[in-house]
Amino acid sequence: MTAHDPSPAPPAPHTGAGLAVAVHDLTVAYRDKPVLWDVDLEVPPGLLLAVVGPNGAGKSTLLKAILGLVPTAAGQVLIHGEPLARARDRVGYVPQRGSVDWDFPTSALDVVTMGTYRRLGWVRRPGRREREAALSALERVGMAAFADRQISQLSGGQQQRVFLARALVQDTDVTFMDEPFQGVDALTERAIVELLKDLRARGRTVVVVHHDLQTVPDYFDWVTLLNVRRIASGPVAEVFTEENLRLTYGGRVGFLERKADPTPAPGGRDDPTTSHFGRIRP
């Protein structure tokens, strides 16, 4: 960070002006293990960014830290130039599929309607307008036919698409997705990719934690390589090099031979407890 603002006011260089997401010096530790060290990240608006790295690299944690879901030890996050507290209306989140109780007595439509809760404010209930918005979001992910189904009676891919629809209904400028492609069928994967491109066409920014290195150049514009520290970040064409990948994955990866990062069993999560024991490869 060489751009320096000489004014004596609090650190000014990181205004995040013109950036969809600006992360500065972000450090997160679970107990004594650093999970993210001093991470900087700048994401210009209107593009699809993949966050890539080995298991335990802190990808999910990066998302959660940006969204204020885990406490940070240090650092600063700006969404479109504003701190999160003032930008909550502009961020959406698609969590990992394993993070909720699927036997909860609620329907797909109900879950999607939750995306409107913030707009509704306290006490007020979702009415017909919210229902219609939720239905049209379900339609966009091809799930309208399942609106009334209890959520445990959906397949994994369908569940993922319900989460996506919930983020769509929020209609935010920036959306964060935690491994939306994990354990989904080909049909859902295509649907998600279409959706990502559609969001980009409308000027939205999407940050996706991604596992399949091979599809990165096809699906994304920018990529961030992460392994506790940020290894590299920028347009795929410039940054997604074998050299950088080796730095990220610890030199044992010939990316061209490897199909995908050895993912944990489907449903395996990157939550605080597992990350705490997360292996950080040398």
Binding site: K64, L67, G68, L69, R88, V91, Y93, P95, S99, V100, D101, F104, T106, V111, M114, R166
Partner: peptide, 8 residues
């Protein structure tokens, strides 16, 4: 149902 989302 989803406390993390509620926090978000």
């Amino acid at each position: 149902f989803d406390p993390a989302y509620a926090a978000l």
